[in-house]
């Protein structure tokens, strides 16, 4: 069954409102895009939406109680809260270097979580 949903393309700041007609995960037609990156975005959003995730983990002996961390690559959107839970349980020791791996292969996704900054 064909279905039409509205998506806002965030590939560039223009933010086109895309009308995406799809059958399940297959895009049939996209309108409202100002360039051809719009349909590509729509397809990715339907099949495997991902987001960069940034949060904090506790740090022992650091200059601050929290260390900001981020995913090295966009992470599957549906598993963000699971990832946040895993990170909430973590505690690391200072000193930490920027881009040091804080959680390797997070939830088996193949994506590492890295430190955003140095912390003495």
């Amino acid at each position: 069954m064909e279905q039409t949903d509205t998506l806002i393309c965030i590939t560039c700041p223009m933010g086109c409102a895309l009308a995406v007609t799809h059958e399940g995960q297959t895009v049939v037609r996209v309108t409202g895009n100002h360039c051809n990156r719009g349909p590509r975005y729509a397809q990715a959003e339907l099949t495997d939406p991902r987001r960069m995730v940034a949060t904090t983990v506790k740090v022992r002996g650091g200059s601050k109680p929290l260390l900001p961390v981020y995913t090295a690559a966009p992470f599957p959107k549906g598993r963000i809260f699971e990832l946040l839970d895993a990170l909430r349980r973590l505690e690391v020791d200072a000193p930490v270097r920027a881009d040091q791996v804080i959680l390797a292969n997070a939830l088996g996704s193949g994506i590492d979580v890295l430190a955003s900054r140095d912390m003495a």
């Binding site: 960069m52 940034a54 900001p68 981020y70 920027a98 881009d99 955003s116 900054r117 140095d118």
Partner: peptide
């Protein structure tokens, strides 16, 4: 590059 705020500052 797509950096975090602290990463950019660093």
């Amino acid at each position: 590059q797509d950096l975090t705020g602290p990463g950019y500052a660093q």
